[in-house]
Design a protein around this nucleic acid. Structure first.
Lengths: 336, 336
DNA sequence: TTGTAAGCGTTATCAG
DNA sequence: CTGATAACGCTTACAA
């Protein structure tokens, strides 16, 4: 194989092996019929020239990129990385490439990414971005791009969705807590820009409490372990914030609260209890282990990608898939 | 904007606004001069038709995809996700898209991904895959694709590399440990397919011990928290494996060891000590906090992407960058 | 079985 | 300032 040359084209391969481009194309795609002899010849020159077809040109000619656009807020959250990993696995199996569109938590960013997805000419898209509303997602589907939307309702011809049934799980958990004699008032930790899944949880949290006529709190906190830890540590130190049940949106934040409590000399779960809404394996690595709602994000990713390939092959049955969070009790809450 | 149409092309825009494609192209790219009047007109029809240029066709015509290939083993490790996040950040700033090539720990997979990178026609590549040797990476650079290689030595015209100086850090740590009276024999936890960074660490671990004439162990373990936890828990329970200093390749594994020890009734760091080689924020979230080598993978990612854009703009100064791991002492080792 | 030629949706170089 | 027209590298009828 030659090195350091400019890209070898199909035309050069054709010349070098004394055939036309059409024949080379046939050999590459194993389509149409070619004599065993010429095939050998062409394959030989392909190897010797180190020719690789240009995916670009192929895509333009066939109107298929074998590229899937994946829209996520950031790869830097464990649960998103898990989903990404599920998507990747199936993508490899189905021979698709993934192009990443990272929106980093700002809605404008997210919208401009949507535009990019369109120009990038992907065959399909998987959108898991809590910031985007249905209007934004419609923009993509209006370009007739088959799309799987995660945790967002949407309808359309070539669109599917995957849901997490957090609302019910949330409500059940709260009802159950009080029913079994839970006596600490609950506080929901709210952070900006953490997406609609959590807003929904928050709404359900409030609604359930109001139905029950129970007191509750919603407290702002930052989406950072260190900030949250420091803030709670100070508060616990000065004797505040205890006798509370904290509902945190992910493991890091829940760990921040319980670590702060313990380092300030409190006992978990006696003095405070903690629940993590989006549990990952870190929920059982930290100590006390976290009571958490677990959802198999890897499975969600796989399922999304399977739905998408079905959509692309026009052989889809179910347009909606639902994942139930599974409550795993840990040491951060009192067994009742 | 029209919905549900097949892709609108530049040609249709031209027709609809009564100009030639050339003019539309000029408007899109803000290149060449166009009357204010015609520009307005064209822009109006672009908006009303909902036209988006095809990145594919643009790429083919300009020979620039604005796409960077990123080769990683999996997005599912915190430190890799961190790096990915750094890359993403700079990519957005520089207006590049990222195409992900996930190799999932098998060398064949990795090699076939390399092929894919080439056909995908990326403008450049960032390769962080411990499995790949220089020969494999040369394959990519021989196609004249500007490349930044992370944690792998490589030379070439349009190639840069980023290194982690683990060898020295490793050696220093071990020497220091014994010099200050560390008295537990050390065991290095080895897992298959965790890449060359860790092989290098292991080699250095062995070499240093042999130079020192100290006893040491290398123990196989699985790359899974649960497996490792279970195995160690049993072992600790039956009274084995204590009075050892464990060197683990990442936080989860280190946490598995210390959790197993504590759950088996041992004390950390009195009975066993633990060091994590690739520390992330979880090193200070778990309890006891982990003594760990921290390396800012987000920074590594950013730096890789900056080097790559420099390479693409032919304005590179440094071809090599080095990141020093920073040792952060935690509660999993005895202060000496 | 093989070759010719017309696209695919852009950009870019010329003339006008 | 604007419009033809030739690339870009490949696929795919249609002919031969």
């Amino acid at each position: 194989m030659q090195n350091l040359k400019d890209r070898v084209t199909i035309y050069q391969v054709a010349q070098a092996s004394g055939v036309s481009l059409a024949t080379v194309s046939r050999v590459i795609n194993k389509r149409g019929s070619v004599t065993e002899a010429t095939r050998k010849k062409v394959e030989a020159t392909i190897a010797s020239l180190g020719y690789k077809p240009s995916g670009l040109a192929q895509a333009l000619a066939t109107n298929r990129t074998t590229n899937i656009g994946v829209v996520i807020p950031s790869a830097n959250y464990v649960y998103i990385a898990n989903m990404l990993s599920g998507i990747t696995e199936v993508a490899r199996e189905k021979n698709y490439c993934l192009t990443l569109f990272s929106t980093s938590h700002s809605r404008e960013e997210a919208i401009s990414m949507i535009e990019k997805v369109i120009t990038t000419h992907v065959d399909g898209a998987i959108i898991f971005d809590d910031q985007l509303g249905p209007e934004d997602i419609n923009k993509i589907t209006s370009y007739n791009i088959p799309t799987v939307v995660v945790d967002n309702k949407i309808s359309g011809d070539r669109v599917c969705d995957i849901h997490f049934s957090y609302d019910a799980a949330m409500k059940n958990f709260i009802m159950d807590y009080y029913a079994k004699g839970g006596d600490k008032p609950m506080t929901f930790l709210h952070a900006h820009n953490t997406g609609r899944l959590l807003s929904r949880c928050e709404k359900m949290f409030i609604k359930t409490h109001e139905e029950l006529g129970r007191p509750y709190h919603v407290m702002n906190c930052s989406d950072s372990y260190t900030h949250t830890y420091n803030e709670f540590f100070e508060s616990f130190k000065s004797g505040n914030s205890k006798d509370t049940f904290y509902i945190c949106y992910r493991d890091s934040i829940a760990a921040a609260v319980e670590n702060a409590a313990m380092d300030a000399g409190l006992n978990v779960p006696q003095d405070i209890e903690v629940l993590s809404l989006v549990g990952t394996k870190y929920a059982y690595i930290v100590r006390p282990t976290l009571t958490a709602m677990h959802i198999d994000m890897q499975e969600a990713g796989k399922r999304a990608m399977y739905m998408l390939t079905d959509l692309l092959n026009q052989e889809l049955v179910e347009k909606t898939s639902r994942l139930e969070p599974r409550l795993v009790l840990g040491q951060s809450t009192i067994k009742r």
